[in-house]
Amino acid sequence: MSFLDWATGLHGYLFVGTILATLGIIAVVYRRNSIGVLLGIELLLNAASINFISFSKFRTAAIDGQIFALFIIIIAAAEAAVALAIILRLYRLRETIDAGEANLMRN
């Protein structure tokens, strides 16, 4: 199997999906900036989308995985809208969007 076959087959897509998911988790865990965290979450969602679409094409030959991906896109948009509103308000009240500084409530 040549590299091209590998890259355009199921494994290639899964490979990209896994890398995206890993990068997303790293971003969520290590980024201090709220927007960076949000981007990490979006990467994770897109990794899941890629998985769904590639499984739908190569594994099941059914349409339900692709439909799931469409729903993910819609819900990610809704989530981002609410998230940006929350971050914006946090910025207005405190003039920083550093996630580490959200520490008013501690024991």
Partner: peptide, 22 residues
């Protein structure tokens, strides 16, 4: 904000799990 960070991250992980199950 905290609810969002935890919630969105948890459900994104869950979604990745769904894709693997699929």
């Amino acid at each position: 904000f905290k609810y969002f960070i935890f919630g969105a991250f948890a459900s994104a992980l869950m979604l990745y799990g769904f894709s693997l199950i699929y």
